[in-house]
Design a binder for these strands. Sequence first.
DNA 1: AATGAATGAGGATTCATTCAT
DNA 2: GATGAATGAATCCTCATTCAT
Lengths: 188, 188, 188, 188
Amino acid sequence: MPKVGAEPIRKAALINATIETVGRTGSLDVTVAQIAREAGMSPALAHHYFGSKGDIFLAAMRHILSRYGDGVRAALVAADGSGGRLRGIVDESLAGGNFDLAAMSAWLNFYALAPTDPQAARLLRVYHRRLRSNLIHALRPLVADAAAEADRLAALIDGAYLRAVLDPDMPPDRARALVMDEVRRITG
Amino acid sequence: MPKVGAEPIRKAALINATIETVGRTGSLDVTVAQIAREAGMSPALAHHYFGSKGDIFLAAMRHILSRYGDGVRAALVAADGSGGRLRGIVDESLAGGNFDLAAMSAWLNFYALAPTDPQAARLLRVYHRRLRSNLIHALRPLVADAAAEADRLAALIDGAYLRAVLDPDMPPDRARALVMDEVRRITG
Amino acid sequence: MPKVGAEPIRKAALINATIETVGRTGSLDVTVAQIAREAGMSPALAHHYFGSKGDIFLAAMRHILSRYGDGVRAALVAADGSGGRLRGIVDESLAGGNFDLAAMSAWLNFYALAPTDPQAARLLRVYHRRLRSNLIHALRPLVADAAAEADRLAALIDGAYLRAVLDPDMPPDRARALVMDEVRRITG
Amino acid sequence: MPKVGAEPIRKAALINATIETVGRTGSLDVTVAQIAREAGMSPALAHHYFGSKGDIFLAAMRHILSRYGDGVRAALVAADGSGGRLRGIVDESLAGGNFDLAAMSAWLNFYALAPTDPQAARLLRVYHRRLRSNLIHALRPLVADAAAEADRLAALIDGAYLRAVLDPDMPPDRARALVMDEVRRITG
DNA sequence: AATGAATGAGGATTCATTCAT
DNA sequence: GATGAATGAATCCTCATTCAT
């Protein structure tokens, strides 16, 4: 009997190892060997499951993105009213989990990758669209030009995240509070 | 007596070549050889004038940062009133020059570098502090809590820039307009 | 399952290749590429098995030293009486094998390395101590101040070796005879 | 009027700088730039006066050798009787000046160079011959086979020097004492 | 499925040396 | 005489990737 189901397990292990390793070193300059060691397997096997280093990274990014997407979806389901939905999106976008070194590095390097790498760009676009659509949906009952307000709020979220990540003077809590003030202004 | 005075010329050429090369490839993964070729000299000479690859990058970033700083300063001098100063800062921060691939890549990769590289972090901090202080100064006559408003505006600027850079659906003009709406709201 | 057990073979091949290459060129200024080529493998593999060029050299030196140590030990076991032991040590120290260009260059360059490289110094010290202790052991039944006589004899051995290596007018045989005269004087 | 006599001054400065630099770093791996800086001139000028790096080294070695030769000559002139001449030679050969890191490194690296570099070999041979002839001259009135005794004593001197240089357990004074004991045995 | 073995293709950096002034 | 400028040629080392087993 062949060992069944090894593939998804191995892939998941590699994805986690990638995030973990990138996080620990704070840089995308990690080697396949490092990732594989962290995942407890040989570099050759990593290449066997993913075709290349780039594919490993992409899978890891997709994982982070979908984890974020799940969080937002859950927050929206649990939310109470338009204001609640807005706050849920913001909360999730600036939640603690996005600020560990692993996620931070992943995001920043992902940004840096996007102008060059079409697959990264596509992934990022999906994220942008979904956030925008969620925001519009939540804002429509509250403001006249929901689309414009959504863009502004989305930019504010990203900017606040950036600051929280890069600026030691701006801890994540202040970043979230800063956006929440704006949300409060909108929800009245 | 030897030919003299080449140093500043060569250094400037290398800085420009760095920005140009990073811009063209859209990635920090450029080799010293590429930069040197672009600057029309040998890799050895690049190492002669700057000590290392990292120093070349740092000098390039410093150049971009100081170019931006000069722009802001000029805009502030020319500005008329608090509202004018605000609009000047926003205009300069989201000016066309910041959106060529070279500047974009430099900024994004600089962000990605900052969590790891202390010198990059220091440089970025200088930028953040200066922007914040400029915004506070311009906002003080207009709002009660200038500091909080400055943080929010700074985040909005960075977020809008990020969107304009990363999202094809958000051209620089829309990004600027988006921030200007907020400025208008503040200035009343 | 992969091909297995290459490591010791490769390491041995690299050590031999190092000695051979250093010997052929008569200088420590050999490149990893040269050594690897001599050993029939890529430079990358050499770095894979030993961490660095320095480690390759050290392993080669250790090999030479242990080869010499084995020779001395065998000579001591086979020796008959104190005088025999003395003659055995001298014979082994000035045996033909120490005079091929490879061993010579290794020794000389090792000497030159020792004041700078702590690991080389440590290795050399081991050799010195062992030789001294062997000599003292063999001399104790024969002379009053065995320690002093051992130091003198050790110096004489090293000096004779040096002459034999450096001076075309002093072939190894004469060098050995020169020391043996002294041994004969001691053993009476 | 041209500046006269610059050449010998510059050359001497470079030779001293070479010895000094080799001594400070304890290795022959010094760059022409380091030597030139130590001598207070540009690397280009060093090449102007000596044709190549090798020539600089050779000149430095020649300097050390002739300095040693002068010392021996002076000691012989001042010496009283055959025994005094012998002691003078030994004293000079193991004098303090030969044990500073500069001279040590020079000697050791010179040894290492000799099997490869014909010029170094020639120089070394001169030294060997002169020492041997001096020793024979001093020994002839004292022993039957002066030539054999001279070779043994020369080897002992070199071996003692080597030990003193390489072995922290053998300070220069003990090395000299060790040889002097032998001298005393000969002079009776 | 899994891995040790192996390498080709760079990449940063160093340095002796040359040259124009 | 003197030097800053400039470079070609190496050198060590790294790493993604392939392959035989």
